[in-house]
Design a protein around this nucleic acid. Sequence first.
RNA 1: GGCCCCGUGGUGUAGCGGUCUAACAUGCCACCCUGUCACGGUGGAGAUCAGGGGUUCAAAUCCCCUCGGGGUCGCCA
Length: 601
Amino acid sequence: MGAFCLIRSHGCGKLNKANKGQKVTLAGWVDRRRDHGGLIFIDLRDRDGKVQVVFNPEISKSCHRTANQLRNEYVISTSGQVALRPPGTENKKLASGDVEVVADSIKILNESRTPPFYINEDSEIDENIRLKFRYLDLRRPHMMNNLLLRHRVIQFMRNYLDNIGFVDVETPILIKSTPEGARDYLVPSRIYPGKFYALPQSPQQLKQLLMVAGVEKYFQIAKCFRDEDTRADRQPEFTQLDIEMSFIDEEDILTLLEGLFTSLIETIKPDVNIVKPFARLDYAKSIELYGTDKPDLRFGMEIGELSDIAQQTDFAIFHDTLQNRGRVKGICVPGCAGYSRHQFNEINDIAKDAGAQGIITISLDSLGKSLDELTIGDIKSVAAKYLTIDQVRDMAISLGAKAGDLLLIIAGDNDLANTVLGKLRLELGYRLNLANPNKYSFVFIENFPLFEKSKESNYYQPMHHPFTSPREEDMKLLDSAPEKVFGRHYDLVLNGYEIAGGSIRIHKSDLQRKVFHLMGYSDNEVEQRFGHLLEAFNYGAPPHGGVAAGIDRILMLMAQEATIREVIPFPKNQNAVDVLFDAPSSVSEEQLAELNLLLRL
RNA sequence: GGCCCCGUGGUGUAGCGGUCUAACAUGCCACCCUGUCACGGUGGAGAUCAGGGGUUCAAAUCCCCUCGGGGUCGCCA
């Protein structure tokens, strides 16, 4: 740790045979004490790791006496000689396990209460307690590693982009509320009574203005704020790698992303397997095959269309569905023909939770046979008596099934069938361990519709955001059939998580105005909310586009954590509460008065 | 706002109508121990079973409500 450390000469975890005989001074926390009466061992821990320190009364009586008072998490500094451990007592589990420090002086820098949970072992602890004592939680090596990983990833991104000509520009945190999209966090203005700043949901408009300014290649590690409900992969404030470029098209951005993420993972996680080149999938295709626009491509189990086969059967449920413009679709669950009653119930529950009325299961309970040898007696299904063996075989072939597999079939509305089967695919795929945790399966999702019809109003709302450019060839459809227009938008998905999204932007004010109008904004509203952007486009705005990547999610995946909170040093809980600071909290009457605020509760 | 899961010494779990005066592991405290490393040994302290109400002769256990936590749908331009 070097030059700046006044009371230490080395990091604990960095000591090894090469330091043999050196006199060192260490500082850190007592990870564990082993008192043998005559001899006391301490594992001393700092950011770099651990090393064993020996207190021998024959070396120093007073040190040994002091070591006797030590407890876990006491902060000490100690000096002594690095010695090879006696043969046979090396500890292979410890990086510094070949050596130990024989202490000849020790100072207790601070005592510690017994911590509310274990720092020195990795066990499940109630998250509320962890968050309340986050400074202790982060002291655990596991969390410290996540924190250091975060540092290395962000450092890598900065260097990578700097090397290819990108400029890091900071944008303000106090800006203007531009409703639509997510709810804003508002900050009252003291100087202007009754007026508010908003925290940025993302630096979107600012980076576009930087393109107008001529920055050409911009990036920022940007904090974003959205006042929406949390999820395992969503927090009220989160961090994006924000990128924008001028004079480029989609391919330039996809190439940049592929290069950046490939070399990021290869540098920081050299042992994992990246599927290269990154896959590409149409939005519509993704929905049809995986029931989602963020598919996990580490395993197959694709959704298959069975409507044509269903049409030929004598099964009333199939016919009713098809008559009502519904579809019959299915997936194959490999090797699960022998599922128990209980397991079938679970599958049924998943399907119902996802909105299905029911699910039809067909067990090809005939292990060892080929599909050709199947007989109707091998088929276990409530629908068996309405199906011929040829129909079952055709379904099995459509879904890529073999004997011993389980077919799950949903009859219903197309969207619903996709959603339900997509959910079952994920759930069962994970249960069957089909998703290799060391595989990084990136996929670009392309060709999103520009708009979707709003449920509440008669207007259109953007799939991505209102600044996304329509495809050139669809421009004329904007007036006649906006729902048929495709946007120049793309997402990057990794192992079932959307980790980046971007687009080529609109850079002309008349087109931007038209899109706002389709969203239902009046001229007046457009001027009020986005006048600054439209005006900027009138002064030589270059064509441009960019992307924003969710750094917390990327880190979550790299650290193999189940939630984003594990890679955020000080996250909020599911109810958006910071339990360490107890925020949000009340403020004094004086503070409210100064802001001209009156609470209406 | 809806749905699902969880709440038992400091921590993690067991117990799921009576045997609970609540068990186990670890941690904590005291003493013993010179080669351990999740050290070992002996002894000890530590729990209104989240809170409230109900059912019952009897509730940690069953039911209802509240609170807290997690997951998810809605929401997230």
